[in-house]
């Protein structure tokens, strides 16, 4: 589903954020992306959604070479990817409900279907009671859950999460993991970047260090070893 082949990314300043990164993520697979701050986790996720383009190598999503996509084709790639941004990217000029319905409006859903799906997504992240609130009135953790609701409302086949549990306590982390698991159950492909080692048990983990893949552990083997 997602395939990196010798991918390097150098930012305009000359800093090489990713060096020769190669890995494959099968359809329906779930994996964690770990690494120190500045290791290149966000950069890697952005390359998948073509928010950044690689300087060399190729990024394949669904057998499509994302790095070669025309700008006009990007929206249709991104509609298939639910993205949870590290900096949330919520809109504070509208309600919680309106934030979540944006992806559906973009795809042209009608009113009734939109309302139904938005409520279902908000229910999943425990924000159903807050749909009329402005996101600015939400706590850090609630904002993070709002991001998750917006990412999953469209039922994308790929979910990319950039530190989705950074502001959450252990209990909510468990809740969020359950949501991701349920998404995994229905066949979505997930790549989740995290600092939180507690989340990693029994799941494939890709560890980045200074832009290179340092270690890669298949979840099943570590699971068996532990």
């Amino acid at each position: 589903m997602i395939s990196f082949n010798q991918v390097s990314k150098r930012y305009p300043g000359g800093f090489e954020a990713l060096k020769n990164v190669s890995f494959d993520l099968a359809k329906g697979e779930m994996a964690f992306l770990t690494g120190h701050s500045g290791a290149g986790k966000s950069t890697l996720l952005k390359l998948i959604a073509a928010i950044e383009r690689p300087n060399s190598g190729s990024v394949l999503v669904n057998n499509q070479n994302v790095s070669a996509l025309k700008n006009a084709a990007l929206p249709f790639l991104r509609r298939n990817i639910g993205m949870i941004f590290q900096d949330h990217k919520l809109l504070f000029d509208r309600s919680v409900f309106d934030n979540v319905q944006l992806p559906l409006q973009i795809c042209g859903f009608d009113h009734r279907e939109t309302a139904k799906r938005v409520r279902a997504a908000l229910d999943k992240v425990g924000l159903l009671g807050r749909e009329k609130a402005n996101p600015i009135a939400l706590s850090g953790g609630e904002q993070q859950r709002l991001c998750i609701a917006r990412a999953i409302v469209n039922r994308p086949s790929i979910l990319l999460a950039d530190e989705p549990t950074g502001n959450l306590d252990a209990e909510y982390t468990q809740e969020i993991m359950k949501i991701f698991d349920s998404f995994h159950q229905v066949g979505a492909t997930l790549l989740i970047s995290t600092h939180d080692a507690g989340m990693l048990k029994g799941v494939r983990t890709i560890n980045l260090r200074h832009g290179e893949i340092a270690t890669e552990s298949s979840g099943k083997i570590t699971g068996a070893a532990s």
Binding site: A49, P75, F76, R79, N80, K89, P103
Partner: peptide, 11 residues
Amino acid sequence: VAKLIGATNSF
């Protein structure tokens, strides 16, 4: 944000 989550230019 709209562009990030798949809005076309015409949208």
